[in-house]
Design a protein around this nucleic acid. Structure first.
Length: 1130
RNA sequence: GGGCGUGUAGCACAGUUGGUUAGAGCGCAGCCCUGAUAAGGCUGAGGUCCCAAGUUCGAAUCUUGGCACGCCCA
């Protein structure tokens, strides 16, 4: 016996029980154990940060990440899933700062770095529980107990090892660059971080007069009109840039008489801005003013520096006439392009004689003492107004206005604008390996495909060296120690290596902290401030000490290092780290949202290509001998690495189409969704509604809809099966089957060829579906796979079960046809259960437990997830049968359509339908299924008519696909000719001769055979007919008394069935029926169809009088009114 | 400003190498069925396939140029 189907149990409740079962029985662990020794399918978990609450977008990534490992496991692979947590970086520091109510770097230092770091470490796990709960509730199987954590010592040491490798190769270098600088935080930000903080703001746009000097260095009456949007950089002005090819004009200001130089194309615009006449007196190319000297607007450096090198007009291609004046203020300290101008200028001189960088702003973003007195010590962005006022007072400000543009702010401290600022910073020379990265990229299977050469490829093309260092606190310390005397450096690859250095001191700082608080995790010893205390004797100078540089690194480097760092691999030549790393590299599958293009996707590729590039070009000689780099020569190093297949998910938007945000509350908490609809509904919504890379708008309704559309539909089939299997005492084990996947041992199990057509059909569909799902999933197309599954479940529910009901209800429990039906449906359900297991693991498990485990006990897998994925039995697939069945379904659908149009409800029997087929290939088969069609359409007869000219117009159209290439330009002519011929006659001719000849005129003619044309049928007016593509169904609409009576009796049956339900009858309960009516017609009909009614309703008696104890109900049967009495037979 | 992507029914989406009646779902309307019943089915209305030009015998599909939106970058 199958366990009875529970009523009143929600999917969500069942899921909780299933989750508990998995956990208690260690099913995930068992799936791994079961695949011991099997080929690996390597999955990398991109580490989320656990210091924020998870939202529905995380459910999406985690669902996809779960789907493929589950699928591949069932397909026979061993798929480890090591969880990971991203724990370092600015987001954590910012959170802690908020708690402490502090903001700037100085405040953190005042608070104490030791305490700050400890707080960071603790805060990383703030939402750990929520994340774990979500992961488990969603059914994302991942090993959280052995998760890798980026702050763990072994992880940090792996990162160190990789950085040491790069350092020793000269690929990690210190450079002087203009960076986006977060002044309050005292650190540079990476391009990715900056990109997240752009906001539209209004900044001043000012036009300033730079008086030009003559050859003697005296101020002339002409000024260059210079434009800038950052007045605060004017005190640090060093050049003015013009485009050498643009025309410049000298104009006279109609009001003041001043002479100004500006781009000729902009004269009119600028005149409009200031609303006065600007008269052009002469023009010249930009190259004509290049080299001219001018007096800078502020004298911070002018009087102390060489006038010949700075404060000159220089040529620059980036100047445009889109806005401004055509002459651009240059402060090389505060702009990347400006800085390049300085470098270019310096190149004109021998070393040391060119212009030096001038800068009167400190790293804290405040003006230094070199700046004009009225701004000293103030935050630069606050000084724009005062600077403008000062310029105005001195008559140098020509015009100012507001200008809206996007400007970057700190992504974690939204009120802090970033500034460009010159800094010493550490870089990784990724530009050296650009080609290798591109080669690796070319081998990655990106989904969708356009990522490869599109967003990701383009990003690689424009690669710049990775700005690695951060002048912050909570991150992987940059493992470079500097000699205090010589400035020479070396990199350290592990903590032990550091301790083994000569005369190491400083470990006591950590030891003291640990003694004071034994709770501190040991991992902290490789972090600031403890690691900074460790120094050792310099190998470069006697008596000197080696001291670590102060920086930590970009946390994206941490996550990108996970392919090896998750195992603590740092070049070991043997041992578990090496083995695990090598067996798990590269990944077969990763998936994250598209925002990771420049994040984790890139950091992984860059690091893996840096360390194990595709050739030996970057290796030192020592490394070439060093066996730890053996991977370079192994097959693992072949591209693609570090991952082979990558599904790039779209972004998930809130219900309102906006980005999900906590403050807008435009989404529901995932835990609520689980409670309301369950994890399977959510998962199915993700997998089955769209390809994963489309941005989806979170839709609660759509999640809800997965239940009736798929989950419940399948559940109902299962429920139907269970109810009748139990009534008929059908038990696969008792029948002799040994397990739930092979039934050949069962005595009553008949081979396919002995079973009825419907059974062969659904099993054909099952196997075709299995083949499709496998093929789609192997191509990482979950959407296509889900569509196939949905169609199959629909076919099973809406055609197989419906058409098989008679067999399930037949009274002979042991009839072969009935047993066939049970076996067939059982097989379909069990296979479907396995097919859906990776997608909706909870429902699949419930079904498996009820359909298989409950019956077979220990002789089947204890969980569906321990099963092998079904393999399609190709011989069982019968394409012709599938086509034929589709045709039957089309005919019945058309029949209903015709009934609906003629307002003849299905309950009313009709004498016949006529079916006319354009293509008679399947006609004979269809004729043999006339009974089925008759039953579906409630007609007494089905007739097939050929050449049904009375109902039909035949239209012949060319088969365009076939004839197109043959006919070319003659196509329209043939189309026209065919539309004019008598279709019916032509068909006759075609049938007898096998071809027809069409005269095209001009002596040309063409022979057409059956394949060259398509026949269209058009029902003639006046018939109750409906037409499909190649078939017309015509109804006979005349009714006889007998037919009407029969229709009435179907009414009666229906009302009685309603009443059965009302009375709470079991499916097997017998009843008695009484009908009291004034209508003689009704009484006659009852008499006539007594047997039919009693049989349909399981009635022992049907009488035309009242039944004493039953409550009468009023009913309309056909046209007649009646009082109906129904009661359960005693 | 540049790159990438997306524009198909009220909504959210499919549409396989170009082939002439553009599709399933939800929603809506009407109807049916009821021995799967806190279900199920059928039918219908609703589309300038963003716009324009081009290539072609033929374009939702290919090309070019616009427009709108999104993301990424400056």
């Amino acid at each position: 016996m199958f366990p009875a189907v529970e009523k009143n149990e929600s999917f969500a409740d069942r899921e909780l029980a299933t989750g508990k079962f998995w956990k208690e029985q260690g099913i995930y662990e068992k799936t791994l154990a079961a695949r011991k020794g099997a080929e690996n399918f390597v999955f990398y978990e991109g580490p989320p940060t656990a210091n924020g609450m998870p939202h529905p977008g995380h459910c999406l990534t985690r669902s996809i990440k779960d789907l493929y490992p589950r699928y591949k496991t069932m397909r026979g692979f061993r798929c480890e899933r090591k969880a990971g947590w991203d724990t370092h970086g600015l987001p954590v520091e910012v959170e802690v700062c908020k708690e402490l109510g502090i903001h700037s770097k100085a405040e953190i230092e005042a608070h104490g770095i030791e305490s700050f770091i400890q707080k960071c470490q603790a805060s990383v796990w703030r939402y750990m529980q929520e994340w774990e709960r979500l992961t488990e509730r969603l059914g994302f199987w991942v090993n959280m107990e052995e998760a890798y954590v980026t702050y763990h010592q072994s992880y940090v040491e792996s990162v160190w090892w990789s950085l040491k490798t790069l350092f020793d190769r000269g690929q990690l270098y210190q450079g002087h660059k203009i960076v986006w600088w977060w002044a309050q935080g005292g650190t540079a930000l990476s391009a990715g971080e900056v990109g997240q903080g752009y906001r539209e703001v209004a900044d001043p746009s000012v036009f300033v007069k730079f008086p030009l000097l003559d050859d003697a260095g005296e101020v002339t009456d002409t000024s260059l009109l210079v434009w800038t949007t950052t007045p605060w950089t004017l005190p640090s002005n060093q050049f003015a840039a013009v485009h050498p090819e643009i025309e410049y004009a000298t104009v006279v200001d109609g009001e003041t008489g001043e002479k100004l130089v500006m781009a000729k194309d902009l004269v009119e615009t600028i005149a409009g801005k200031v609303k006065r006449e600007l008269e052009i007196v002469s023009t010249c190319k930009g190259s004509g003013i290049v080299g001219k000297r001018y007096q800078p607007p502020f004298d911070c450096f002018y009087s102390t520096h060489d006038h010949n090198t700075s404060w000159r007009v220089v040529a620059a291609d980036f100047v445009t006439t889109d806005s401004g004046s055509g002459a651009v203020h240059q402060a090389p300290a505060f702009g990347e392009v400006d800085y390049e101008v300085l470098v270019a200028e310096q190149a004109r001189y021998t070393d040391g004689e060119g212009p030096e960088l001038i800068n009167c702003v400190g790293p804290d973003g405040k003006f230094t003492d070199e700046a004009p007195a009225f701004v000293r010590g103030r935050w630069v962005k606050d000084c724009d107004k005062d600077i403008n006022r000062n310029l105005k007072e001195r008559g140098l400000l020509f015009h100012q206005e507001q200008y809206r543009h996007d400007y970057p702010f700190c992504w974690r401290a939204e009120q802090d604008p970033l500034i460009q600022y010159p800094r010493e910073s550490w870089f990784i020379r990724t530009t050296d390996i650009k080609d290798q990265m591109l080669a690796n990229n070319a081998e990655i299977n990106w989904l969708p495909g356009h990522i490869k050469d599109g967003r990701f490829g383009k990003f690689l093309e424009s690669n710049v060296d990775w700005a690695l260092s951060r002048e912050r606190f909570w991150g992987t310390p940059l493992p470079i120690w500097v000699c205090e005397q010589t400035g020479k450096m070396e990199a350290i690859g592990s903590y032990d290596e550091l301790l083994a250095k000569p005369q190491t001191t400083g470990m006591e700082v950590w030891e003291a902290a640990k003694a004071a608080n034994p709770e501190l995790p040991d991992d902290l010893r490789v972090h600031k401030p403890y690691i900074d205390a460790v120094t050792y004797a310099s190998p470069f100078a006697d008596g000197a000490r080696m001291q670590r540089v102060t920086e930590v690194i970009d946390c994206w480097y941490d996550s990108g290092a996970m392919p090896f760092a998750q195992w603590g691999y740092r070049g070991q030549t043997s041992g578990p780290e090496k083995e695990r790393f090598e067996s798990q590299f590269p990944a077969d599958f990763i998936s994250e949202a598209i925002d990771q293009t420049r994040g984790w996707f890139y950091s992984q590729l860059a690091i893996s290509t840096m360390i194990w590039g595709n050739d030996e070009a970057g290796m030192t000689n020592d490394e070439k001998k060093d066996s730890s780099f053996v991977i370079r020569n192994s097959s693992l190093a072949k591209p693609p690495h570090p991952f082979r297949n990558c599904i790039v998910l779209g972004l998930m938007l809130g219900e309102d189409g906006q980005k999900m945000s906590k403050s807008k509350r435009n989404y529901r908490d995932p835990s609520e969704i689980f409670d309301l609809y369950g994890a399977d509904a959510l998962r199915w919504y993700f997998f089955a509604n769209q390809p994963p890379w489309t941005s989806i708008r979170y839709s609660e309704q759509a999640i809800k809809d997965s239940i009736p559309e798929f989950l419940l539909r399948l559940w109902n089939v299962y429920s139907f099966f269970t109810i009748y299997a139990n009534i008929d005492e059908f038990d696969p084990k008792a029948e002799g089957a040994t397990d739930a996947c092979g039934f050949a041992d069962a005595a009553s199990y008949r081979p396919l060829e002995q079973r009825g057509e419907l059974d062969r059909w659904i099993l054909s569909e099952l196997n075709a579906t299995t083949a499709t799902v496998t093929e789609r999933m192997d191509a990482y197309d979950n959407y296509g796979a889900c569509q196939a599954i949905t169609e199959f479940v629909d076919a099973m529910s809406n055609w197989y079960v419906r058409r098989s009901r008679d067999r399930f209800w037949a009274s002979d429990q042991r009839s072969p046809e009935k047993l066939d039906a049970y076996w067939t449906l059982y097989e379909c359900l069990v296979s479907t259960t396995k097919l859906i297991a990776p997608f909706v693991p909870f429902l699949a498990e419930s079904l498996w437990q009820k359909l298989a485990v409950a019956v077979f006990g220990d002789s089947v897998s204890e969980s569906v997830h321990l099963c092998d994925f079904p393999v399609a039995k190709l011989p069982a697939i019968d394409a012709a049968l599938s086509e034929q069945m589709n045709l039957v379904r089309e005919v019945t659908s058309l029949g209903r359509q015709a009934r609906s149009a003629a307002e003849l409800k299905v309950r009313q029997p009709l004498t016949k339908v006529e079916v006319i087929l354009a293509d008679t290939t399947h006609q004979a088969w269809l004729e043999s299924h006339a009974g089925l069609i008759a039953e579906e359409l409630n007609v007494k007869a089905v007739e097939f008519t050929e050449n049904a000219e009375q109902y039909i117009d035949y239209t012949i159209v060319p088969n365009f696909k076939q004839l197109g290439p043959k006919l070319g330009k003659n196509m329209p002519k043939v189309k026209k000719l065919l539309s004019q011929v008598d279709g019916g006659q032509m068909l006759v001719e075609l049938k007898s001769a096998g071809k027809v000849t069409l005269e095209l005129g001009g002596g040309e003619s063409i022979d057409l055979d059956e394949n060259d044309i398509e026949v269209r049928l058009q029902a003639k007016a006046g018939w109750a007919a409906a037409q499909g593509r190649g078939v017309v169904v015509v109804l006979a609409t005349e009714l006889t008394t007998e037919l009407i009576s029969e229709g009435w009796m179907r009414d009666l049956v229906r009302v009685v069935q309603d009443q059965r339900k009302e009375l709470g009858c079991e499916f097997t309960d017998r009843i008695e029926i009484g009908v009291v009516t004034e209508s003689a017609e009704l009484r006659t009909a009852i008499e006539q169809f007594q047997k039919y009614v009693t049989q349909e309703t399981l009635a022992e008696a049907l009488v035309c009088e009242s039944i004493a104890d039953a409550e009468p109900i009023s009913a309309k049967i056909g046209d007649a009114d009646a009082q109906l009495y129904v009661q359960v037979a005693s």
